[in-house]
Design a protein around this nucleic acid. Sequence first.
DNA 1: CTGTTAGCGCTTTCAA
DNA 2: TTGAAAGCGCTAACAG
Lengths: 332, 332
Amino acid sequence: MADVAERAGVSTMTVSRALRKGGPISDETRRRIMAAIDELGYVLDQTAGTLSSKRSGFVATLIPSINNSNFSDTVRGIGEAIEGSGLQLLLGRTDYLVENEETLLESMLTRRPEGIILTGGSHTPRSRRLLETVGIPVVETWDLPLEPIEHVIGFSNAAAIRALAHDLHARGYRNIGFIGGTTNRDTRGADRRLGYSQAIAELGLGQARIISFGSPPISMEQGGEAIAQLLDQWPEVDAAICVSDLSAFGALMECHRRGISVPGRIAIAGFGDFEVSRCSHPRLTTVSVDAVEIGRAAGSLLLRAIEARRVGQILPPERHEMPFRVVQREST
Amino acid sequence: MADVAERAGVSTMTVSRALRKGGPISDETRRRIMAAIDELGYVLDQTAGTLSSKRSGFVATLIPSINNSNFSDTVRGIGEAIEGSGLQLLLGRTDYLVENEETLLESMLTRRPEGIILTGGSHTPRSRRLLETVGIPVVETWDLPLEPIEHVIGFSNAAAIRALAHDLHARGYRNIGFIGGTTNRDTRGADRRLGYSQAIAELGLGQARIISFGSPPISMEQGGEAIAQLLDQWPEVDAAICVSDLSAFGALMECHRRGISVPGRIAIAGFGDFEVSRCSHPRLTTVSVDAVEIGRAAGSLLLRAIEARRVGQILPPERHEMPFRVVQREST
DNA sequence: CTGTTAGCGCTTTCAA
DNA sequence: TTGAAAGCGCTAACAG
């Protein structure tokens, strides 16, 4: 800034003002300063600015996996929502583990983010404590936690799968199985399994037929092995609900390979409305959630909360339930 | 730090030392300090530390898309490489546009990253200038630029597709088509198309049969529409190379839908060895690149370069060509 | 092994 | 519309 100020014949304070949109500064002075910056090829050092202004301009976001279109869509939505606000995303990948979330959270908090968006409603006690201590706005997404930290933009994964199971039942399927991961590490996956069990009980379908296969997130490959196991163990199954479209797709392809007709011999449905489920042959029935919209809603809510804090206020906790939709396609 | 220091009965400088691994400090003092930090629920403010030490602890990484397993695998590899070094990833998504790359770069440089990993070898003049001015280590990946900025961890996309075309030729295919995007926005995609054209010329196969479909990255859906167009325009084609596995998969599914046998009537091959290509039926022939290893190599190279700068040295530019491999599967 | 002093490059605050 | 002074919370450098 000193170099720029000298070149433009002003003080560093004037340079600082020129770099903010609303600053009281004459057009001519700003032009000279911008020219000087451009000639020097300099960029502002936000580190110093953060220290001085106590505004980092960071928004921390934690997602389970970056290579999952649901979560990457949500990140895109967050990006759209904070675009133009001067806020920057600090992205972290928990790999579906709350322990990783805690570590990442701690490491991100050292950057003094002004707000945080988390995936899911399960966190370690220490994570909750850290968030309380820093006192910045928090939004939990993709879930409806019973005891939210603060704001929530989510939906019930259990209710979504229940709706899918009811839909299958209405179409005449009676022996519906479920394919998911072996642990509760993926809490949304565990919630979906719960929704399946609830639906089976509600519909009076007797026995729950659950194949747990592999550490979450369950892959396409594992979906294929799981469907074989399901058909082996309960030959009477006429429909399979998979914890996500990826395993559903793997199951579908394995059926092709074995000459098992879908939906003739068995119907297959997934969750998430991934691109692969729209393109496969047959196209996969699934539950669609607007992941981009979850991100947009979470981002704009967080933005309002951050702006409130900047003027010394606190936005009361908000909780928005996002819609989901059973998408009936050719596989059921 | 003042609060912690008071509680532990030491100076802030001692607290600072306790928070670094190698610091000269007694076990007992460190224990007391850590206890105080834990009781208070405080985390270090790296903003101030960055300003003082001139080390941000950030590594900036720019990728075209986060929802692409190739790039997200590379990010994972980078993460593995820098794990334990105390460095943190600052991730940005360019959406395949060098103009976005420039904007993101500028915004990230305000955070004073200690090193940068870029995807591809095409950048705006201003991007190159900014990088020169800041003088931090730069690694370009996923390409072999003719005029690299500094370090390179990549491979030739053209050579990879040439190898695939030669492989198809060796298996008897003579009328090979290519499916890709309409513009050069995705420079790796454009390079792959170039490799196809080179191979057609080298092998004396006469006419190049190229279907350009949609703005890159071309989707599964678009792959399906493109294969229909290819078969319509050149009914003699006996093989199709797609710019990526996603479009190849879309093409494959569209053939299923139309009752066109793969590979009986037409062979289909892709690029990238995505999970979907390993699981589809038939499994897709593709070109495999170890994306995680590209990330690991780029990360550890950058780490060496950063450590060199920290002791006032400069690591001479390195250039590593990563292997690719044609993976013959059932679709050809 | 621990403490003191100075200062990183900005922005806030106040004054003109 | 502009400038001067002070200070954000750490760490480097030096001393003991």
